[in-house]
Computed example of a mutant assay.
Amino acid sequence: MTAKRVRLADGDEVEYDRLLIATGTRARPWPKEAEAELDGVFVLRGRDDAAALYRRLKAGPRRVFVIGAGFAGCEVASACREMGIEVTVAERAGAPLVGALGGVIGAVSAELHSENGVDLRTGVMVTALEGDSAGRVRAAHLSDESVVETDVVVVSLGALRNTEWLTGSGLGAGPRGIACDAGCRAFDFRGIVTDDVFVAGDVARSPHALFGYQFLSLEHWGNAVAQAEIAAHNMISPSAERRPHLWVPAFWSSQFGVNIKSVGVPPMGEEIMITQGSLAERRFVGVYGYKGRIIAAVSFDNTRWLEFYQRQIETGAPFPVEFPTVDRRPEGRRPVPADFPDPSLPTHGPTVTLSGYSPADRSLVFTPAHH
C-alpha cells in the first residue's frame, strides 16, 4: 500500500495516485464442494447465473429446491410459482425474511408462501445434496431427516465480500468488508484513515450519522451508485470540498405479486408498529423503533408512505409514532417486539449488516441538506 502500486493477476504492476476499491461480493457457495458441482445446483448473483437458471427453469423441472429464504430465495420461489413449477424452500430461521425484516413481517411472508403453493420448511437445515450416477442433483436431505426429491437446487445463502486479495495490504479489510470513513476513505489495519485509497459499493463498511455511527455494509445497487458518486467526488476534491455518504438505506423486492419496500435499517429495530393498513390484508406500513426514535419502515403494497417515513428517519423523529395519520386499528395502537433473530446466530443474509459500535446518543440529529 505504501508503494502505491496494484499488482495484477498477470504479474504486471500499476501505479496510482488515488485507488478505488469496488470489488463487491460473490454468492456464498454451497460449502460441500463435490455437492456444489452437481449438475442442477445454482447460485444467483450475476447475469450469467440468472440466464443459466432461467434456461433450466424453462426446461420444466419437476421440483426446484431453494436453500435460504432471504430476499433472493423468496424471489426465486415466487418466479417458480409464476411459471407453474413446484418449489420447496428450506430456511433455518422460523420464517422467511426474518433476518432482514424480523419475525412480525416474517409471519406475513410465510403466509404468502403457503397461499401461493410453496412447500415452506422452516427451522431446518440442509445436511446434504445427493446426486445420481450421472452427476445430476436428485435430492436434498434435511436436518429433520426428511428427503426432498428435486432436479434444480438454488443456493441462496447470502454473499461473501471480495477482500481476500487484500491480505497483507495493510488495509482494514476482512470478511465483513473494508472499513472506510463517511467520505469513503479506507482505514488501515491500525484504524487510521488513508488519503489515497477509497472504497464503494457492497464491499464497503462505513459509519452512518443517522444510525448512531454504526458501520453499515449495504448490498444494494442504489447504495453502490450513491456511494460511487461520493467516492469519485472525494477522490478529485480537496479536503474542504469533500462530502459524506449519507444515503438512507432503501430496498425493494417483488414477491408473489406483492411489492415490498423498506427504508432505514430494520435490523436495528427493537419494536415495530403497524401504522397504516393491516397485516391481514397484506397492505400495510410497519415502522421500526430503536431507543425511542424511528429507525426504519417497511411497506407491503403501500409505498406512498415511505417517503414520509424516510424524512422521519432523517430528522430522528420519536417512536412510538403519534400522528393523526396512524390508522386506529387494533394492531396499530401499540408497538410490539420486532422479533429479529439473535444477531450472533447466522441467518440468511440480512440486506443490511450492522458491524460496529453504536453510541446511543439521541441528542445528535443529522439532517442532510436538501439541494
Rank of each mutant, 00 (worst) to 15 (best):
S133W: 05
T122S: 13
H141L: 12
A139P: 06
F71T: 03
F71I: 11
V126G: 10
E82S: 15
G103H: 03
V108Y: 07
P96F: 05
A95L: 09
T127D: 04
D132N: 05
E86R: 10
V104F: 13
A110Y: 01
V104D: 13
G117W: 00
V104Q: 15
V104H: 14
G135V: 10
A110V: 08
G94K: 09
N116P: 09
A72S: 12
V108C: 03
V98W: 02
R121A: 11
R62A: 12
G106E: 12
F71N: 07
T127I: 04
G99A: 13
G135L: 08
L101A: 03
H113C: 09
E115D: 10
A77I: 07
L129S: 08
R63D: 02
A128S: 04
I67P: 15
D119Q: 07
A69V: 02
E91Q: 08
E111I: 06
V89C: 06
T122G: 03
S78F: 00
C74S: 15
S114K: 13
V124L: 15
L120P: 08
E86V: 12
E75T: 12
R63G: 07
T122I: 14
I85E: 11
A107P: 10
L120R: 02
R138I: 01
E75D: 13
V76C: 10
T88I: 04
G84N: 00
A107S: 10
G94I: 01
V98I: 06
G102V: 01
G68P: 03
R62W: 10
R62K: 14
A93S: 15
S109V: 04
L129P: 04
R63C: 13
I105E: 02
G103E: 11
P61C: 10
G99C: 01
P61S: 03
V64S: 00
E115T: 00
V104S: 13
V124D: 02
L112M: 14
E86F: 06
L129Q: 14
F65K: 06
I67A: 05
E115S: 08
G60Q: 07
C80S: 11
